[in-house]
Design a protein around this nucleic acid. Structure first.
Lengths: 254, 254
DNA sequence: TCCGCCTCTATGTCTATACTTATATTGGGT
DNA sequence: ACCCAATATAAGTATAGACATAGAGGCGGA
């Protein structure tokens, strides 16, 4: 007979979280208002306090609730919600889009880190780093362009590698797990070289991503990635099954 | 005397997570390798299994571990790490940067949703929506530009509001909590109007953010935000206290 | 050989209980 | 009135024990 609690899926903490979300979204509990404490909710939902705690911590991380010891839990006034960007290797992105992946290293040098790069990595300017530029292709079309600086002191194994052969993106992800990362998005007009490599016009607006990673030994690498024009980076949907789903018939006519 | 376990901070699950991270980063446990099961780690760290479970679940969410029932836990081959972008109200962003906040509504209409907008919101094209454009200022300089469509069916209270007076961004965040959201980043060249409103040149590369939110009644709003040239959007640092911290003396000379 | 069923293991989840800790409130004491 | 110390409350965390469940591996039958 499968007697599920109340027309919901199984994990109890999830159900509690969903129900609390519902009460907030339907304004049963309004912004800034204090909600019943864990013990009370545990009784209401017939669960252990630990289970309620798990649910509420989840919602607090989402930004919907604010919790303080002794003061209780209240609905956030300005919910600062969080979206997550997943950082995968380029090959996966390309192949997931159903395209054939390609990769080409266009330049390699060992040179002194300019101030901007040194600052990003937290190193003294002038330290000699490996510097490379590469293009990633999808079905033969340029997909993105990377301009990367690597501090091989943090990844000694790399010293023996032939950078011309290497897909730095994949090699690093698979061989140099990091402890910390910094990621920023911005936009820039393509310069002549970027336009040529991406097969577009100079001046074209490009989505730029800067990524820097560290391990226990220090900064590993910093990359500037320029995406092909029109490229979108989207966050993982913050989607919590509600009562509403898009009409299937709503695909735009034309 | 403060006899802390092993030179680490208190929450036990955190310590276990940190130690596991260390073993991964220092290649004690290599990519793809299976790690001891929860019961074994519980004994090693002298903790309950639930505590170890919490630690490992954390690392799995981070993308460092892959866990499967019966198959055990192993170090991810291609760690797909996650970074989080926090979505706060514009006023907070501006004031946090130490600037005075300003806001101006430049246009309001009620018109039929064009196909692109309808598609983003999952509505049938042609539905009449509120459409507004506004500029957010920081210290009198344009900070960002929003072009917003609102489905007042999902937020009935809004029907009584004077849109010219309203800061839609804040009003919605504070009064219309959402269940789901979609967020994308891209880049575009400024057109004549955008250039004028942002006080820059046409063609200037702009960082564009599209955001759509839903509640239980349906789509609430979709916005296209164009950021002031040079604006950066950065993710919350994935920073896990390691042994390494940047040299304080490393600020770039000049 | 190959397929489907059974078994057993590692993770997933919940519970009851206990103790810790931050902090709002209260009640002095000056 | 004001400041400080004591108190109590709600969240934070850990624990042992239990049961659920996915799924890998093995077994047997066709």
């Amino acid at each position: 007979m499968m007697d599920k609690p109340l027309g919901s899926t199984s994990p109890k903490a999830q159900n509690i979280a969903n129900e609390v979300r519902r009460r907030i979204v339907e304004r049963e509990w309004r912004q800034g208002e204090r909600i019943p404490d864990e013990a009370a909710l545990a009784i209401e939902f017939d669960a252990a306090r630990a289970t309620v705690n798990k649910a509420l911590q989840l919602l607090a991380e989402e930004g919907l609730l604010e919790r303080r010891r002794r003061a209780g839990t209240r609905v956030a006034i300005n919910p600062v919600r969080k979206a997550t960007v997943t950082i995968s290797i380029v090959r996966e992105q390309v192949e997931q889009a159903g395209m054939a992946y390609g990769h080409r290293v266009v330049a390699i040098r060992h040179s002194a880190a300019p101030p901007a790069i040194a600052a990003r990595m937290g190193l003294s300017p002038g330290k000699v780093l490996a510097h490379m530029r590469a293009v990633h292709y999808g079905d033969g079309q340029p997909f993105q362009l990377e301009d990367r600086w690597i501090d091989t002191d943090s990844v000694p194994e790399l010293k023996a590698c032939d950078f011309w052969q290497l897909n730095a993106n994949e090699w690093l992800v698979q061989n140099a797990p990091y402890l910390g990362a910094e990621l920023t998005f911005s936009a820039a007009n393509a310069d002549a070289r970027e336009a040529r490599l991406l097969q577009t016009q100079p001046g074209q607006a490009l989505l730029i991503m800067h990524r820097t990673t560290w391990n226990d030994l220090g900064p590993i690498t910093t990359v500037r990635v320029a995406c092909q024009p029109g490229h979108l980076i989207s966050t993982e949907g913050i989607y919590h099954r509600g009562s509403w789903t898009p009409d299937e018939g709503s695909a735009p006519a034309v």
